[in-house]
Design a protein around this nucleic acid. Structure first.
Lengths: 206, 206
DNA sequence: TAGATTGTTAATCGATTAACAATC
DNA sequence: TAGATTGTTAATCGATTAACAATC
């Protein structure tokens, strides 16, 4: 099947990957659809159905081998390789992101850090140095950066976005609350913690 | 209708609220279903359908008044009041969260900050002081804290979670990558930036 | 009036769920 | 063998989409 996955399937497979990665880190070797369900809030039958569409990866009465499932899902999502991303903003949030393993665990390598504050150029953040913002376009091309992660104030987000779009980046991950205007071929993901809390709160109060 | 919203509707309404809040901040007064669609990636027809189930909030040919829609959705989600939350972890991520307006914008007040490192007690973070972790249970009750936000290392997340569950907190917002075990009546939301990137990447590569 | 956008219908597609045989 | 869990079916429900009259 060279068919494109539906949005729903791709989203769910990504979430299984997240759980499997973490379960492996915790030393687990096998996992059942029921357990994945508890961590993702996705129905266990649906998990089995999603997976069985691509092959028989599990063992009845036993569950799924985490290594096998990780490899299979990465194959399906075609995300086995390493991908370079650039981080914008060397403030507290930028440092927190750079020092976290959450991107590295999934094959995303932070290949550059930028800050519009020229005074920060050359400062180190993790094992990287803050690059000169003027070199954005060159760095994106040289290091084949396909994702821009925005850890900048909301007031600066649109300007950085425009420069990223200009440089040809097609995926933007927005940690600010700004609403970003981009061309139709650019994808923006805005993190949304308060909205998720409101939703949890509704079911708590109701 | 005293009926409970479906999970899907509650999720989408929360996302509309996020966009409306930000659009208002940017000085906008009106917005169309098409614009909300561009920012949320939710189909415009579905947005109108979600809203029209509760009343006729828009004006044909014009769009929706942002103020009207904000008030109506808050009414529907019953999230008009202020809610107290507690932040765990006074590191870089904790500071970034405390200094952001993302929770305050939606009526969430950070009423306490804790850190398991006793050396940090009394330090200020924003206009709060880090409280003594030993007082967790008392503070949760006194300040009526209903959400715990975890900005702690993955290795510490389960222990803090257990203490929160013990103190009666039913909603946990997990910024670490740890898989948390909780009783069935406790809701955990784990942020998942890498999984969302994987999903965006699939559609970029395909 | 002309243009824009809502509110609503109807048709289709995907998600959800229960149930259970297969089998490890 | 007994217990557990997958793989799969079938039935239902909600999401998605196109289309368009109503109306601002």
């Amino acid at each position: 099947m060279g068919d494109r996955l539906t949005v729903g399937v791709a989203t769910r497979l990504s979430r299984y990957l997240q759980v499997l990665t973490q379960a492996k880190k915790m030393g687990r070797e096998r996992i059942s659809s029921q357990e994945i369900s508890e961590y993702t809030n996705i129905n266990a039958t649906q998990i089995r159905r999603d997976l069985s569409g691509f092959g028989k990866f599990g063992k009845r009465g036993v569950g799924y081998s985490i290594d096998v499932l990780l490899a299979e899902i990465r194959k399906i999502l075609r995300t086995q390789g390493q991908h370079n991303i650039a981080l914008f903003g060397a403030g507290r949030l930028g440092h927190a992101i750079a020092s976290s393993s959450v991107f590295a665990d999934h094959g995303f390598n932070i290949a550059a850090v930028f800050d519009t504050d020229a005074g920060k150029v050359g400062q180190s953040i993790g094992n990287l140095e803050v690059s000169d913002y003027a070199e954005l376009k060159d760095v994106v091309h040289e290091r084949n950066i396909i994702v821009g992660v925005l850890a900048v104030p909301a007031t600066a987000a649109q300007a950085v976005t425009n420069d990223l779009v200009d440089a040809g980046v097609k995926i933007i991950f927005n940690y600010s609350e700004a609403l970003l205007n981009v061309p139709a071929d650019v994808t923006v993901h805005t993190t949304n913690p308060a909205a998720e809390l409101l939703y949890a709160l509704y079911f708590y109060l109701a």
